[in-house]
Computed example of a mutant assay.
Amino acid sequence: MTVRVMLVSPATSAALRQARFESDAPLDEAGARRARAAAGALPRADLFLSAPSRRCRETAAELGATAGIRPELGDWDMGRWQGLRLEEVSEREPQAVAAWLSDPTAAPHSGESLAALCARVGDWLHSLPDDTGRVLAVVDPAVVRATIVRALALPPQAFWRLDVAPLTLTELSGRSGRWNLRCGRVLGGEPV
């Protein structure tokens, strides 16, 4: 049986607009409004899930979905960089940022490496039983990117080449070991 995994990226927040390592910031008013407007475009699902971050939970609520929280779908753990803007971190720790961007096993922020993030979300994806049906999960952009990398067996460096806009739908269909990808469908209007 084919499993369909539909990943929705959260609506905008101030942290997202500022390129800040902060997934627990609330949605901004524009993001909440766009999520409400997109509610009618949400595809049918048998199971609704959300990452634990505030922006994902709020997006799910604004979309009208009652979603179960799954810790394994949580955002990338950025350790001591949490709450900082990428620009700030680059100025303070240029060598650490360079290592983080070039070595998938590096975690200079004392958080999670890219390889660990991809493994975590890949383990979740591959654990889905063949009779799961249609799963819709609101997850942070890094989780969408890591899931694509693992599902398609891409090299970890491909993660940095994937863009995930707010309120877009990424769909994987198939089963463990053989996934097909459809990405970037906008929910309810133009991407931000």
Rank of each mutant, 00 (worst) to 15 (best):
V89M: 11
Q18G: 02
E58T: 11
V139T: 00
T147A: 04
S23V: 07
D163P: 05
T66K: 14
S110K: 00
P10S: 08
Q157C: 06
P104C: 07
A67Y: 05
R145E: 00
R33T: 15
W124P: 07
R175E: 10
T168N: 12
P71D: 15
R150V: 05
P52R: 08
Q95E: 15
A35I: 07
S90Y: 03
Q18W: 03
E72I: 05
G122K: 03
V192H: 10
M1N: 12
R175Q: 14
L152T: 08
R20K: 07
D163T: 14
G74D: 01
A38G: 13
Q18S: 07
W179V: 09
A115F: 05
A153Q: 15
V138R: 02
P108T: 03
R17I: 05
V186F: 09
F48T: 09
G40F: 06
L27H: 01
S23Y: 10
G133H: 11
R34K: 04
A98K: 02
C118I: 15
V8F: 01
D28E: 11
A146C: 03
I69D: 09
A137N: 07
P108D: 00
A39H: 09
L27V: 05
A158M: 13
I148H: 03
E93P: 03
R17M: 10
T147C: 01
A38F: 06
A11K: 02
E190K: 08
L114C: 12
Q157N: 07
G184W: 07
A96N: 00
Q82G: 11
D46L: 14
R161D: 14
L187M: 11
E22A: 15
W160P: 09
D140L: 06
A39D: 09
R92N: 03
A51T: 11
A99Q: 01
S50D: 08
D140H: 13
F21R: 08
T105N: 01
A65H: 11
L167T: 09
T12C: 14
S176R: 03
W81N: 08
A96M: 01
V143P: 05
D140G: 05
M6R: 01
R34P: 00
A19I: 10
A119P: 00
E29S: 14
P129F: 06
R120F: 15
G79Q: 05
P94I: 02
L47Y: 12
V143W: 04
F48D: 08
G184K: 08
A35S: 06
R145Q: 02
E171K: 04
A41T: 13
R161G: 14
L181F: 06
W76C: 13
W160I: 10
L169P: 12
W81E: 06
A115L: 12
A115E: 14
A60V: 07
G184E: 09
A25V: 10
R150G: 01
V149F: 02
G31K: 13
L49Y: 13
R150N: 06
L162P: 10
L7G: 05
